[in-house]
Amino acid sequence: MNKYFKLFTNGLLKENPLLVIMIGLCSSLAVTTNIWNGIGMGLAMTFVLLMSEIMISGFRKLIPNSIRIPVFIIIIAAFTTIVDLVMKAYTPALSKAMGVFIPLIVVNCIIMGRVESFSYKRTVPESILDALGMGLGYTWVLCVISIIREFLGAGSFFGMVILPEQYRVGFFSQSPGGFFVFGMLIAIAFAVNKAIEGRGGAK
């Protein structure tokens, strides 16, 4: 397998930030009550991650080691604010639904973690692939959680109501439902990763 392709697929499942590394959970559980929120949050996060990784790996020789964390935060905060302003301007309803979780991308540990452990030491192309992989890994998990929670909790799929009121389980719209769905996904991801490993070992 190509080295670059591997970097990209790493984030999707094998080192999925949410299901395997288990970082950046707060935003993912809080906004995933409907699919649009999941997609919006995932894309916002992917954009900030991608731009921050590009900038930091591009300038990594110009960032003194002793002040790297404050510089990372300045860069991440700048891109987060850009996303926040753009969302407020063009998708006000979505921006309202996300509330404080868009500004909170600044302190999202996925971005901090990837920037510190990956792009500060790697080249720009590698960082781009890592950011896309991690970002999409984050986004797809968010989408799956949102779809399950929206379907069971609000009885709808992409906003279309398909489940009558009496079959809905309000529990899934609340926080404990989020944890429950998330826990199930972790278990499935664990099993899948193990199966893949086992097959690789047998070869």
Binding site: L62, I63, P64, I67, P70, V71, I74, I75, A77, A78, T81, I82, L85, V86, K88, A89, Y90, P92
Partner: peptide, 24 residues
């Protein structure tokens, strides 16, 4: 070095802000 990064970030944000403020 720190100030330079902050200045660049602020200038970039100022442009985005000016572009989006009327829309917001």
């Amino acid at each position: 070095v720190m100030a330079a990064y902050a200045v660049v970030a602020c200038v970039a944000l100022a442009f985005v802000y000016i572009a989006t403020a009327p829309k917001i």
